[in-house]
Design a protein around this nucleic acid. Structure first.
Length: 510
RNA sequence: GGUCCAUUCGUCUAGUGGUUAGGACGUCAGGUUUUCAUCCUGGUAACAGGGGUUCGAUUCCCCUAUGGACUACCA
């Protein structure tokens, strides 16, 4: 392990919009790894692309992590300033140029003056001939750069204010051997690589490649855990560590498999938004242009369900356990149990996780969450009363938001009656049955009395009415439908008067 | 096109040189329930294809196919 024994990992998103669930999973795995090894989890903002910067992204990222219970130890969003501040790359500008110059001085990089237009023209020319243009050893000497130009002209151009970039001078025909904690050993020949830009002229900022390596080194990162899309640039990063003389303290790398769309092709991307019928973002996102994308939080997911679901998308504990608290995840997590292949996101399973967590919560806890929903629907009741209602229906809910439709009949008499139910179980014979039941109910002092339900059952048995028929017609009269929870419990909840009122009304109007 | 990575039920996955290839979601059936849902039980369903290596390959190797990523002065 590099530097020291301490595990230090970072999540380093760029603020180009909301974090999607793939990004959240990367953050989660980093966090779990850090906790598991008693290390640090840092949040660094990689805002080196001034063009793509989207205001609000950073706040969104911080809030998302917070909602998930992923606590940042150091960096942006941490409680206190860390020892390696600042943690926003735009605030570290000066650092990068210094290292870029070090690379130029050591012959590992060079100035290039080619304009974007010139390069585009070259690219098009090559492509029309069926070839691909690559800024590499085969062409670098014939392009406009400090390798091809006399030193005096290079100086003049720089002093004269010409636009320049710094490019990495990719070694020729060298095998780069790399190790990935998830994929094992890999070898790539440098001849297939090009001279990547390390420092841009456009905004005076480094590219990802340089900034990333410099910051990881300076911040003493021990493990880089990131998405698989970075795998192709791993050789470049290895070479950069070597060129900067940091080979001995190079972090270890782990490239996570991608999250794929539920159906169709390709990786899950930010643009998918709500087209797929489920959120791709942890929280609701309002884009600066007004576009709104839904989030798991607003869709009613519990953070623990969301995190649990995400953790198992690409990682497994090797046991048959599927339900994990964050603490249990920390305990069980290891990089060698992360899969290699991309995982297709499954919305059904996500719902199942949420239902599971919802069913595990106490009636009181759910009632607290449900109270605002009730209020929105014009129902203002104390929390213990809400808890009773919740207790009757929670088994059939997946989200707290589902609970309103499931409980509305406890607060409002039905205005319509389900036609299928009426067809099946509402006729003159059933009405007689219901009237007889009403008579019995009327004799009961209060439905809350102990033994009240037993009295009704005794009457049913004694009267010779089939219990199913009685319950069914009772349910239709009170709820307007032939399905739902225990009808006696509901009648007790709404009370004797309301129950009889609804029965009378049904008998009269139907 | 080039480079790299991957491939077990529809989906997430476990697993081994010899297993009835296991679990979960979904789905189907049955049970419980006054009904629905929950819950329980059971069923369905997979080693991409072709060559090797081997007494024996899902497992090891090669090829093909398929999927994916990357191929910007984006990350």
């Amino acid at each position: 392990m590099p530097h020291n024994q301490r595990v230090r990992v970072r999540f380093a998103p760029s603020p180009t919009g909301p974090l999607h669930i793939g990004g959240v999973r990367t953050a989660l795995y980093n966090y779990l790894f850090a906790r598991k090894h008693g290390g640090d989890f840092l949040l660094r903002i990689e805002d080196t692309d001034s063009q793509r910067y989207v205001p609000g992204s950073e706040e969104y990222i911080i809030e998302s992590l917070k909602w998930c219970g992923i606590n940042v130890d150091e960096g942006v969003g941490a409680d206190a300033d860390g020892p390696y501040a600042p943690y926003r790359q735009s605030e570290r500008k000066d650092i990068y140029l210094r290292y870029a110059m070090q690379l130029v001085d050591s012959g590992n990089a060079y100035f290039a003056f080619d304009t974007a237009e010139d390069l585009n023209t070259l690219r098009k020319e090559k492509e029309s001939g069926g070839e691909t243009f690559s800024y590499d050893a085969s062409v670098r000497n014939s392009l406009v750069n400090s390798l091809s130009l006399p030193a005096s002209e290079v100086d003049e151009r720089i002093k004269g204010g010409d636009n320049w970039v710094i490019r990495f001078k990719m070694p020729e025909n060298e095998e780069v051997m790399m190790t990935d904690l998830i994929r094992g050993d890999m070898t790539v020949n440098t001849s297939t690589l090009d001279d990547k830009v390390l420092f841009k002229s456009a905004d005076g900022l480094p590219t990802y490649h340089l900034a990333n390596i410099v910051d990881d080194h300076l911040m003493e990162i021990s493990h880089v855990i990131r998405g698989e899309e970075w795998l192709p640039s791993l050789p470049l990063h290895y070479l950069l560590y070597k060129a900067l003389g940091w080979e001995g303290s190079r972090p270890e790398f782990a490239h996570l498999p991608l999250l794929l769309k539920p159906q169709g092709q390709g990786k899950l991307s930010k643009r998918d938004g709500d087209k797929l019928g489920f959120p791709v973002f942890p929280l609701l996102w309002k884009a600066p242009d007004g576009d709104i994308s839904s989030g798991y939080r607003e869709a009613g997911y519990f953070p623990e369900a969301f995190v649990n679901m995400l953790a198992l998308l690409g990682w497994n504990p090797g046991t048959e356990q599927e339900i994990f608290t964050m603490e249990e995840l920390v305990e069980a997590f290891s990089l060698d149990r992360v899969g290699k292949a991309g995982a297709r996101f499954n919305p059904d399973k996500a719902r199942w996780f949420n239902a599971h967590y919802l069913h595990e919560k106490s009636d009181e806890e759910l009632a607290e969450l449900f109270l605002p929903v009730l209020k929105d629907n014009g129902v203002d009741i104390p929390v213990d009363s809400a808890a009773k209602a919740v207790g009757l229906i929670k088994e059939r809910a997946t989200f707290v938001g589902d609970m309103w439709e499931l409980t509305r009949f406890m607060f409002f008499a039905p205005e319509e009656y389900d036609e299928k139910a009426l067809k099946k179980s509402w006729n003159e014979g059933e009405k007689v049955r219901l009237e007889a039941l009403a008579g019995t109910l009327r004799e009961i002092e209060s439905f809350d009395d102990a033994g009240a339900e037993e009295r009704v059952r005794q009457w049913i048995a004694a009267s010779g009415n089939p219990i199913g028929k009685v319950m069914n017609v009772w349910r239709i009269a009170v709820l307007g439908t032939n399905q739902g929870p225990n009808i006696f419990a509901i009648s007790a909840f709404i009370g004797k008067d309301e129950t009889l009122k609804r029965i009378d009304r049904a008998l009269l109007t139907l």
